[in-house]
């Protein structure tokens, strides 16, 4: 079978994971004033103290990395779908796929490293 079904199935699955994880992320970051979730040091959910408190928890670090990977796949595959529907030349399509894959991998490595490093730093302080 051609790979279309495979990639699309995981695109959908990633969407469902994002619905939950990104939903929680949005609720924590943007509804802190109402819900006070995971923000022990004050109502401003994105203050430095609150960010570092979350970074010190290993479950948040793991969730950040998972959210980043799943989000990048869902988003970049979606962008590729839109671009490929423009009827590009085969060489351009290959270049688009390569470029998006590299962008995704680079950002995943950067973000995962940063999440882990932030956990180490915050954990050291906590």
């Amino acid at each position: 079978m051609s790979n279309g079904t495979k990639y699309w199935t995981w695109h959908m699955a990633a969407g469902v994971v994002l619905l939950i994880l990104l939903g929680l992320h949005m609720i924590i970051m943007h509804m802190g004033g109402t819900l006070h979730l995971f923000s022990p040091t004050g109502p401003d959910a994105v203050s430095i103290a609150n960010s570092q408190w979350r970074d010190s928890k290993i479950c948040f670090t793991i969730t950040y990395i998972l959210l980043l990977g799943v989000g990048l796949y869902h988003g970049l595959y979606g962008l590729r779908t839109i671009l490929l529907e423009l009827t590009l030349k085969p060489a351009v399509e290959k270049a688009v796929t390569l470029l998006l894959t590299l962008t995704g991998l680079a950002l995943f490595v950067l973000g995962s490293w940063a999440a882990w490093a932030a956990h180490t730093i915050a954990g050291g302080r906590a």
Binding site: M1, S2, G4
Partner: peptide, 16 residues
């Protein structure tokens, strides 16, 4: 099904 699934899951197939 197997023959048509090749066509349907290719680039111009059902997922567009």
């Amino acid at each position: 099904f197997k023959v048509r699934a090749q066509v349907a899951s290719a680039d111009g197939g059902a997922f567009r």
